[in-house]
Write a protein that binds this DNA or RNA. Sequence first.
DNA 1: CCAAAAGTGTTCAACATACACCCATGA
DNA 2: TCATGGGTGTATGTTGAACACTTTTGG
Lengths: 235, 235
Amino acid sequence: MDILKQYESQTKFLVAIDSIIFGFDGESLKLLLVKRGIENEKDTWSLMGGWVQEKESLEAAASRVLYELTNLKDIYLEQLHTYGDPQRDPVQRTFSVAYFALINVEDYTQALSSAYEARWFSLDELPTFLFDHSMMVSQAIEHLRYKASQHPIGFELLPEKFTIPQLQKLYEAIFGAELDKRNFSRKLLSTKLLIKLDEKQRGFSKKGAYFYKIDEEKYQKQFNTFLNFLPGGSV
Amino acid sequence: MDILKQYESQTKFLVAIDSIIFGFDGESLKLLLVKRGIENEKDTWSLMGGWVQEKESLEAAASRVLYELTNLKDIYLEQLHTYGDPQRDPVQRTFSVAYFALINVEDYTQALSSAYEARWFSLDELPTFLFDHSMMVSQAIEHLRYKASQHPIGFELLPEKFTIPQLQKLYEAIFGAELDKRNFSRKLLSTKLLIKLDEKQRGFSKKGAYFYKIDEEKYQKQFNTFLNFLPGGSV
DNA sequence: CCAAAAGTGTTCAACATACACCCATGA
DNA sequence: TCATGGGTGTATGTTGAACACTTTTGG
C-alpha cells in the first residue's frame, strides 16, 4: 500500500482550540467566559473557543480566537493539554487543544470588541460548564499555581506599571494564601527584575505605593530560572 | 444555521500520536526508535507513532502504540504537547500529540515483540529526524530534566530493585552533571521513599551495593511534592 | 594485600521564615 | 492628629554545598 493510501484510509476529526483566559482585577482572579449563541443553550457560559482552520497552525488559531474576542494581540499564550475523549463532544467527535492565556483586565476593558458577549467570573462563582471544560479549567488553575510558583509569570496579569502591594495581592489570589509583605518584597526585589519608577500610585492609599515596571530584557533571559515564589513548597 | 451544520462545515484532519520513549541502560539515557517501513525512507529511524482510531481516546492510542512496539502495559506515559503546523507533514496535514514514555530497558528486552525493528539510541548519537520530530525530542528531554528535578520520577526508568549508585548514575545522565554521592544519598533517603532490602548487588563492585525498592504507597502520595533534586537550581 | 566502589558525618554559607516598628499622607 | 496602608531590618532555624576518610571484598 502506498503512503497516500495509508493516509487516506484513516479517519479524520474536527480540531478545535479552547482558551482558559485569566485576568486579575486587583482583588481576585477571574476567568473570561462567553455566552453561547446556540439556541437551547442560551444563558450558559462557556470557554472561548474556535475551530482550527485548514491552513492555520494551532498557535495561530489560539491567537486568532483570542483576538476576535478581546481585540488584543501579543497575549501570553501557552498550550496546555489536548483533550480527545471520543465522548467529550456529544455532537461530533472533536479534539480540543486547550490554551492558557493571561491578560490584563484593563487592556481588555479598553479593547473590548462587541462581537461576543463576555464577562469576567471569579473563580469561586464559576458556572457549570459543558463537555470537559470544567476539567480544563481546573487543570489550568493548577498550572497557573505551578507556573507562578516557579516563574515570574504574574506580571502578565498586571498593567505595565504596578505596585508591589498589587503584585502581592495577585500572588495571594493565585495561591489562595496570605503572604508576609516583608518577605515577599525582599524575595521579589532580589530577582532584580523590577525597575522602580519615580511615580507613586495615588488615590488608593494615603501614603501611595511606588510604581514599578518589569525589566523586559532580564525577564526574557531569566524566564526559565526557578524562582521559588511560594509559601511552603508543595503545590 | 443549526449546530450539526456548523460542525459539518468545518475541515477535518488526521490525528496521530508520537511517543518519545526513554530508557536507561545503567550508563546513559536512550531513546527507542523504530525503522520506517516506507520504501524510499529505508534506513531512516523514527519516533514510534500511530493514527488515532475512530473510537479511541488519545491515552488509549498512546498505550496501544506503545504496547504494539514493546508488549508492555502500565508504562509511565504523559502527554507532552500537540504539534499542528500546516506544513509539518508533507503528505497530508496531520496533528500529532506527543507522548512521553519512561520504560525500564530490561523489561523491554524481555518483552520484545518482533513486529517492528527497533533500537535504543544514545542521546548523543541520535539520527536526523523527519518532520518536527527533532523538536519533539528536544522538548521531551527538557521536560524530563524539569520533571526529574522536581519529582522522584527517575524510578520509572529503573528495575524494581535498584541501588543508590545506579540511581545516581541515572540522575547524572539526565542532568548531564556529576553529583556528590554523599549529598545525593542523603537527599534521596530523606524523602523516605526508599525501602532498603537485605540483598546486595553482586558482580559489579567488590563491596556490593544494597538494593532498594520504592515505597509505592508513599510514592503515589508524594508524587506532587516538590523535591528539588538538582544541583544549582536552574534547568 | 591492594584496588575499586560503597557508605557515612561535619562544617559553612545561603536562604526561608517569623516577627515589629517607623513613615507618609489624606481626611 | 490620627487612621491607613507603605516600607524596611534582624534573629533564628533549615537546607544545600563542599569536602575526606573508613569499610568491604574480589582478585
